[in-house]
């Protein structure tokens, strides 16, 4: 098991955004975290990266308890984040963003990893010296994924992969995700675009107001229209 959450709650101040969540992520799988706005998906992923307070429960990652680890320790253990809105270092160039992504690796490894990432996203190679803030939305998302890959992660967490992107850029990013997963990378994917996420994922978990309303295999979700409706919140409309 790559990641295991037990009775896990996280939030801000005295507020619990995610409550008593149990979740397991298999090694080499893609797990989708789905739900509507405010369901707690992003807070969950930020808590897994060490950026949101954990209120209760444990995080077990690769057979180690990382509940109390700092964001720096987590990236050193192989957890990398592609945050919502990309959060690139906008005043730094594409190349410098890669360097920061690979800060914990050796210079030689960084050089090799940059070559690999450019082979996945050739467009970034053409924008090497350009400031990250001046890239298009699609290029920024590619850079955000590439920057996270520079850390040589075992678990890649992606928050809102398709948000605000053109269809062609979404296709490119999803293809990259599938290719990376085929190479053995475990991926945790937060998405509002439910159908797209279910197409690529092996398992899914649906959150609503911080609580789990459904979890199971993505195949099961794809085959059952009720589940899809519930994911989309249609059941609320009667």
């Amino acid at each position: 098991m790559m990641l295991k959450l037990k009775n896990f709650s996280c939030g801000y101040g005295s507020m619990h955004v995610v409550s008593k969540l149990d979740m397991e992520v298999e090694k080499g799988s893609i797990t989708a975290i789905l739900g509507t706005n405010g369901a707690g998906k992003s807070s969950l992923i930020m808590a897994l990266a060490g950026l949101v307070d954990i209120k209760q429960g444990d995080i077990e990652y690769d057979d180690q308890d990382i509940t109390l680890c700092s964001p720096m320790e987590r990236v050193n253990k192989g957890i990398a984040l592609v945050p919502e809105g990309r959060r690139l270092f906008s005043s730094l160039s594409v190349y410098e963003n890669f360097i920061i992504g690979g800060y914990i690796t050796s210079k030689k490894a960084s050089r090799n990893n940059i070559e690999k990432i450019i082979s996945i996203f050739p467009r970034l190679g053409e924008r090497f010296k350009q400031k990250a803030g001046s890239l298009s939305g699609g290029e920024q998302q590619m850079l955000a994924i590439g920057r996270a890959l520079m850390a040589e992660p075992k678990l890649l967490m992606i928050d809102e992969l398709s948000l605000g992107l053109m269809p062609k850029a979404i296709d490119t990013c999803y293809k990259a995700i599938k290719d990376l997963n085929a190479l053995g990378l475990t991926i945790l994917l937060v998405e509002q675009s439910t159908q797209r996420a279910l197409e690529v994922s092996d398992s899914a978990i649906v959150l609503e107001s911080g609580n789990t309303v459904w979890k199971g295999s993505s195949q099961e979700a794809r085959d059952s229209s009720d589940i899809i409706d519930s994911i989309l919140g249609l059941h609320k409309q009667g």
Binding site: G50, P71, M72, R87, E96, I99
Partner: peptide
């Protein structure tokens, strides 16, 4: 590298910590 890490921290301290910069 140190200087780039420094500038990244000025840009976004939280994200730079996520990549191992103290």
């Amino acid at each position: 590298r140190i200087g780039t890490g420094w500038r990244a921290t000025v840009d976004d301290p939280q994200m730079s910590a996520c990549f191992g910069i103290n």
